[in-house]
Amino acid sequence: MKVLLSHGDGGRATHQLIKEVFQASFNDVELDKELDAAILDQQGGRMAITTDTFVIRPLFFPGGDIGKLAVTGTINDLAVSGARPAFITVGFILEEGLELDTLKQIVQSMARTAEEAGVRIVAGDTKVVEKGKCDQLYVNTTGIGFCNEYIKLSYQHIKQGDRVIINGGIAEHATSVLAERMDVPLSSNVSSDCRILNGIIDQLLTEFHTIRFMRDPTRGGIATTLKEIAEHAEIDIWLEEESIPILPEVRGTLELMGLEPYYMANEGKVLLIASEEESERIVDFLKAIPGQENASVIGHVSNGEGSVFLKTSTGGTRILDMLSGEPLPRIC
């Protein structure tokens, strides 16, 4: 069965869709009430709010799907902000003609991911647009979390000598979707790194006390994210090319398309800025967690004016900047 415009008009068909697909999967008492807003009992504390819309192609990729990604992305944004994710809202735009089974799979994947993260999906919305006015399915997730009072992460805490740490190989998400997105007869066994990080980050924040700041290097890759950090914190960041973890097949795929791994999206990575003293222990701690074995210190902070430098394996130095324009396959 396919999604029809009437599934989004707010009438009988919409109700049926909500009941059969969303309520059945998300299984939250607030959704079942079908009210204008979810009402959540006494909440308190410093609150973190984040929103992201997901317009990715393909919907399903090795290691995940848009549903898993949408929940993961929002959970990770909260987690890197030092918050414990609590609630998520979900806003779908569906293209007329989408297979309902596709939608169901995605919704179930969202539900699984939210459950794994211990997060409730408490409100939702669905719109259907005419065929050709959407690329199958877009989804917005908005997340709300609460912060421990004593954890304060901030650009301002970053100091000369601090270390830059990543929890594993870069560019895996972008590489996993590359062939289909660029319509190139390419295949590799690269899986997306798409993974919720709130559990790990919670442990890190409990265990270590000199974590200055965190970011998840999604769109724009580690280059863009670190450049943003460098500019906001008004420091320089020096990376060692040889210590940046990257799978050979990720490197190979990107070289074939003329693309640079530093600018490619990650969906299960966190960049941590921490003190030199704790940095090695943080890496060891991460390495002990399954799936985080490739964690590594990849650079350090110096006083500066917002640049990111990369020391190459031949000993040269180059600059990394923000992504400029969508990465396109190149011949030169």
Partner: peptide
């Protein structure tokens, strides 16, 4: 095959 990824 180039470094583990395949292209036609």
């Amino acid at each position: 095959d180039y470094l583990g990824s395949q292209l036609q």
